[in-house]
Simulated scan of single mutants.
Amino acid sequence: MQAREFMVEALIVVPDRSVRELAELLLREGSDGACVVENGKLIGVVTTMDLVFQEKKVHLPSFLSIMDFTIPLEPPDRLRSELDKIAGTKVRALMSGDPITVGPETSSDEIATKMVEEHITILPVVEGGRVLGMITKQALLQAVFKR
């Protein structure tokens, strides 16, 4: 079965949409995510997990102290990135950029493999740079088990 046969209509949001509006849209539509489009081009995806991320506890970095030296045990940009995402008020701050996509002829087993291996919630279906739809876990399950 090919993606075009079971993809669902893509929810499209702009990067400057507020996080509150995004949450309201996803709840109203019962969707796990949306495609972020700017100037007609897919620039990212945003999911319910990105919204849940905003509620998590901040992970403080670990340090190793030896004599008078302090050595960070994690990349210093990780904390900044995490804080930016938690404090984000616009979709742009939450979205995952450079999304993994599939074409309309991609098979269901290829899609399942990508979703599992890459931990993907939604998978945009793109052709010629245009978003045609998206694959959700629910759409994939329905396609596979309704054969």
Rank of each mutant, 00 (worst) to 15 (best):
R80I: 14
S62I: 12
A93E: 05
L60M: 14
E82I: 04
T106Q: 09
P72F: 04
V52N: 02
L73S: 06
G30T: 01
M49R: 10
H59C: 09
M67R: 14
E55N: 11
C35E: 05
R78N: 04
I86R: 12
G103Y: 01
L79A: 11
F69K: 15
R20M: 01
L42T: 05
F69V: 14
T113M: 14
G97Q: 02
R80E: 10
E74N: 11
G88Q: 06
R20N: 03
L51C: 05
P61Y: 11
K114D: 03
V46N: 07
E105Y: 02
G88E: 05
E82A: 14
A87W: 02
I12S: 10
V37T: 10
S62G: 11
R17C: 09
D84V: 02
A34Q: 10
R92I: 06
T48V: 06
G44M: 12
A34H: 06
F53C: 03
G88W: 01
V37K: 08
D98M: 09
L60G: 09
T70M: 13
G33L: 12
I100K: 12
P61C: 13
H59S: 14
E110L: 11
V91K: 03
V13F: 06
G40A: 08
F53D: 12
D32N: 15
T47L: 12
E38L: 12
P104V: 04
S81F: 00
P72G: 11
G33A: 11
E82N: 10
E29S: 05
S18C: 10
L79R: 04
P76H: 09
E105N: 13
G44D: 07
D77W: 08
G103L: 08
V13G: 06
A93V: 00
R92Y: 07
P15F: 11
S96Y: 01
V52F: 08
N39P: 06
S18L: 07
S108K: 13
V102F: 02
P75M: 12
A112Q: 08
V37F: 11
K90I: 01
E110S: 13
E55M: 15
K90Q: 12
L22C: 04
S96W: 01
S31Y: 00
E21C: 00
M67A: 15
L26E: 03
A112I: 00
S62H: 14
L94V: 04
V91Q: 03
P72M: 13
R78T: 02
D84G: 02
T106N: 07
A87K: 15
L64C: 09
E55F: 10
I71C: 10
L79S: 03
L42C: 09
E82T: 02
V58Y: 06
T106E: 13
S81M: 04
K57Y: 02
I100Y: 03
T48M: 10
T48E: 05
P76T: 02
P15R: 14
F69T: 14
I71F: 15
T47S: 15
V19P: 02
S31M: 10
R20H: 01
R78C: 04
S108E: 14
E38H: 12
F63C: 08
G40I: 04
V102W: 01
N39M: 11
D50M: 09
T70V: 15
I86W: 00
C35K: 09
L83Y: 00
R78S: 13
